[in-house]
Design a protein around this nucleic acid. Sequence first.
DNA 1: TTTTTAACTTTACATGGTGTCAAGTTGACA
DNA 2: TGTCAACTTGACACCATGTAAAGTTAAAAA
Lengths: 196, 196
Amino acid sequence: MSSQNIPTRDRILKSTWQLLEAGNGNAVRMSDIAKAAKISRQALYLHFPNRADLLTATTRYLDEVHDIDAKLAKSRSAASGTERLEAWVETWGNYIPTIFGVAKALMAMQETDEEAAAAWEDRILAIRDGCEKAVQALKADGKLTDKMSEEEATDLLLTLLSVRNWEQLRITCNWTQDRYIDMMQQLTAQALVKSE
Amino acid sequence: MSSQNIPTRDRILKSTWQLLEAGNGNAVRMSDIAKAAKISRQALYLHFPNRADLLTATTRYLDEVHDIDAKLAKSRSAASGTERLEAWVETWGNYIPTIFGVAKALMAMQETDEEAAAAWEDRILAIRDGCEKAVQALKADGKLTDKMSEEEATDLLLTLLSVRNWEQLRITCNWTQDRYIDMMQQLTAQALVKSE
DNA sequence: TTTTTAACTTTACATGGTGTCAAGTTGACA
DNA sequence: TGTCAACTTGACACCATGTAAAGTTAAAAA
């Protein structure tokens, strides 16, 4: 087993991700994660003070493993505003499936746990930033619709690209990932790009 | 106090609604509801077997109090398909604030509780029906976009009109209710109505 | 070689909410 | 006077998170 040599902390993060990824809706408990990482439940608390922290660390771990920064940089290099919007929708939209398990767990905790709410809020801000940049690129090209302000456009884009909407279309309605991306690109373009 | 004479069951439902309506994010417990209804926590269980049932009953109670059926009938009487879509978005969109508290509590339970999930699913089906009817009206007028099937159009409309999206724009982003309705009408029209 | 230290394990327990159980109270009605 | 329904009171099981304390183990430091 190669996993014997992986540092415990990484083994925990990997196990957390795998359980949340696979766990079809059934809640993943701290004890489940401990079992999967082959340590005692209490050892978990030696590495992470609480569940919210563990989940947050897992999202950062995923960002690292998948080198999300590089992907974002690529989408930022698009020539025109409209292309940049398209690229952003595609990049983020295709990253959602990766983080979905952890995101859902974190969103569920948000309701009751202050710290979880703050952690998720922090993640959302990063995504909002991506939305804002896309809107600004449109604006710079003179292609932003005059039906709304830049801020409203950012709000709307962030809302359309929410994890919940992805879940609704992809999981509940059983759309393919390609169809989801395609439709979101159409939808966001229709909503934000000035019609000639 | 006139509330002394109201039957206990109704007093419970009313209290549940008021607490969830007012309760700014802080979870409403069974004991809170009991206190508000001026009965013991155990008496709650004489009227409702569990929390999920109580929440579901509360949504039905709200539907009754606000005579949602009459409002829906009105939106169904719109002449053209596009008008009907507009009316549906307005009717449902303006009903969301009323049920938001209960809806949020039910959605939060959904994650862990089978029965809550089923109850909420049942409510969603009713809304989906409204979406489907609006799409069919568009289709009948030959105004439905040819970019997607009727089913996909229904999926999309249901997703756009989700309680989560309302929460995001209205609460998190602080949009006015009027702006929300206006934007949703634009957005759904752009997405679903065939462009000339 | 002995000691120390970090990374664990095991066991126990507090907390907070849901839901169950059983015995007692109260007031209206027969 | 008795009965019944609608309650109250108090106790408790369950389940997950998180805390606390004492013991083990293996490897590095002295």
